[in-house]
Write a protein that binds this DNA or RNA. Structure first.
Length: 612
RNA sequence: GCACCAGUAGCUCAGUGGAUAGAGCAGCCGCCUUCUAAGCGGUAGGUCGAGGGUUCGAAUCCUUCCUGGUGCACCA
């Protein structure tokens, strides 16, 4: 809440305190369009029962007792509501130069996202995961958290083995200029088809490669695929702090140590007879209600661990309960920072960096994995350790719905996909065509086209709630008008253009006369003032769509202000043609608008060009 | 069968206890003698899936039902 709204709330509390002894929460909300006042409260309703009087009477009483804080002109009872009127000039001034990020606080949160199997190129289904995780990480950082982004590399899984084996099976070696994730992905699909004729031999070969992977023998091959995938993620403007390889997690003994902890739990048993004879199972019925089958297998009869068991060790490590992984730099990321990787030859704290040891854990994984994710949290909670219980409570699964392709489910195995690389090219091309048409003389047209195309794409993935299904259609995903990133970017460019002209004219902020500002400016300023609430709510709910929707709101308010006309239909908000004094005050508001728009877009990982 | 998610304007979606339920797209009517029309204004369009309940107040909370999606392996 802005300081002004807090002050209004306090003043209401003071006024209410004389009427009742009970401490009462006083909500302060925006007054709807068309009603008198700017901020208001329905608190009179809440007092009605205790005071046994009608709300409008109480509202009048509260108004009589209300002492306006600085910046507030007066309060007025509007029926049962109590509304206050704000001084426009003071309000705008209070907004200028406000910090848009929370000061850093000593609370670490790990965001695990992407985690694409290292055997194929990423498609638009993965795009949602990547963009969502990246936006959440940015929002959490802005809300003051110490954020560590992890990308889990499942290098011992079946998929990686299949792609590597496919190359050998078909006798292929990658051409020098091949993008390896795509190259292996195509072979992976071909191998799937070949299984129908030659299933047994392929199965044997894949198994051999899986064993080799477990021994760490094909690490370089997998790393080459990971490198190729990273090129795509970097092109999206996404960066990571550390890659965590499954083989390293296993080799570090986290699996065994996790299992040792669990074996001491009363919920974990190894039946000597029946359906689960010889397996290690966990009874999760006390954690998950309504299960037909309360037992979950952690370790198979043959001694091999299930995914859930492996993940428990990884989650324990994230929470700082296990140590022992070593790290080494993997790459310098073009968009900033060193990317580290787990590596048996590395060191525990390279360059003084300490990984894991997080208080909060966010796992960005699609909704179909909700069940196994719940099992992992159940295992942590039922481990019988206090640390496990805490880790369970502080880990959240950010579940997002799947992306379909023109109504069809995507499938890497069947080759029904749309690669991010291809979508990026198309997005940039479409944006470039529009830039050329709208602004043929634009200096850095190519860079702007990239920002606009990528922005449109990211925005399409973020503007709705994560639990909403997305059907990818070109026209919608690359929409350059309406509810889209380019709409917001354009609003920003417009503001930037005014600021450039003002600078060329040598206008000085010091000449601003804020007293000349009116209701017109206040409307826009109130929109800007919502930012802190939106940011903190989005961080708490892991909900970037709130930020995206807010970006649209700010752009719309600014565009409405920009185009405003008086009763005679003449523009009455032309900043640079305003009277001196008013002109500079308006300019300050425009600067604040541009700053807010750029920052909000930044939280979504979207550029804000100064011209387009 | 059990569990989770969704159902709001023709379409795609915002809005999770407060004031006449909002936006984009599609439709219709306007606005560039321009601080960038990738924009703005207006108009039309809604039994907020259905029924019951809680509340001064419900799209929002509870409950039953309907429809659609997903999940319930010694896979991940």
């Amino acid at each position: 809440m802005t300081s002004l709204r807090l002050a209004v709330q306090d003043a209401f509390k003071q006024a209410v305190a004389g009427l009742t002894d009970d401490p009462i929460d006083v909500p302060v909300q925006e007054v709807p369009e068309g009603k008198p006042g700017h901020y208001g409260t329905p608190v009179a309703f809440m007092l009605a029962k205790a005071l046994r009087r009608p709300p409008p009477e109480i509202a009048a009483d509260v108004v009589a007792r209300f002492v306006p804080p600085p910046g507030v002109l007066r309060a007025e009872a509007v029926g049962p509501y109590i509304n206050v009127f704000v001084d426009p000039g003071g309000f705008v001034q209070g907004l200028l130069q406000r910090p848009l990020d929370q000061p850093p606080r000593d609370e670490k949160v790990i965001v695990e996202h992407t985690s694409v199997n290292p055997n194929k190129e990423a498609h638009v289904g993965h795009l949602r995961n990547i963009v969502l995780g990246d936006a959440v990480a940015r929002i959490l950082a802005s809300a003051g958290f110490n954020v560590e982004v992890q990308n889990y590399i499942d290098d011992t899984g079946r998929q990686a083995a299949e792609s590597l084996f496919a190359a050998a099976y078909f006798g292929q070696t990658p051409p020098a200029d091949a993008k390896l994730d795509r190259w292996y992905g195509e072979l992976y699909v071909r191998l799937g088809e070949a299984k129908e004729q030659d299933g047994d031999a392929i199965e044997a070969g894949v198994t051999d490669v899986m064993h080799a992977l477990e021994r760490g023998e094909r690490r370089d091959d997998v790393a080459a695929i990971v490198q190729a995938q990273l090129e795509t993620f970097w092109a999206l403007g996404v960066v990571y702090d550390v890659l965590v390889w499954e083989s390293d997690v296993v080799a570090s003994g986290f699996l065994e140590r996790g299992l040792d902890v669990l074996k001491a739990s009363p919920y974990v048993t190894q039946p000597s007879e029946g359906k689960y004879e010889g397996a290690l199972v966990m009874d999760v019925s006390s954690f998950i209600a309504g299960l037909e089958e309360p037992n979950v297998v952690l370790v198979r009869r043959d001694g091999s661990a299930m995914y859930v068991a492996k993940d428990i060790g990884y989650q324990f490590w994230k929470a700082g309960l296990f140590d022992g992984l070593a790290f080494t730099p993997f790459a310098e990321q073009p968009t900033g920072g060193t990317l580290y990787t787990s590596d048996p030859q590395g060191e525990p704290s390279p360059d003084g960096r300490q990984f894991a040891h997080a208080q909060d854990i966010v796992n960005v994984i699609d909704v179909r994995q909700s069940h196994p994710q719940t099992l992992v949290r159940a295992a942590l909670a039922l481990s019988g350790t206090e640390e496990g219980r805490v880790a369970s409570e502080h880990s959240r699964h950010l579940a997002y719905e799947v992306v379909t392709l023109e109504g069809q489910a995507m499938s890497g195995r069947k080759g029904i996909t749309l690669a991010i690389d291809d979508v990026l090219v198309e997005a940039t091309d479409r944006a470039a065509a529009v830039v050329k048409e709208k602004n043929p003389d634009l200096a850095n047209a190519e860079a702007v086209a990239r920002s606009v195309g990528l922005g449109a794409l990211r925005f399409a993935m973020l503007k709705s709630e994560a639990k909403r299904m997305i059907d990818f259609r070109w026209e919608q995903a690359l929409n350059l008008q309406g509810d889209s990133a380019p709409y917001v970017q354009y609003a920003h460019a417009r503001a930037a253009s005014i600021l450039r002209a003002a600078e060329a004219e040598g206008l000085q902020d010091a000449d601003a006369d804020f007293a000349q500002l009116s209701e017109l400016e206040l409307g826009l300023a109130r929109q800007l003032a919502r930012f802190e609430d939106v940011r903190d709510e989005a961080a708490a709910a892991l909900a970037p769509h709130l930020v995206a929707q807010y970006a649209l709101d700010v752009a719309a308010s600014w565009n409405a202000y920009y185009n405003h006309r008086d009763e005679n239909g003449r523009p009455d908000t032309a900043v640079l043609r305003s009277e001196p004094g008013l002109r500079e005050a308006r300019l300050a508001l425009v600067r604040e608008t541009a700053r807010t728009l750029a920052h909000v877009l930044g939280l979504l990982g979207i550029d804000a060009p100064d011209a387009m």
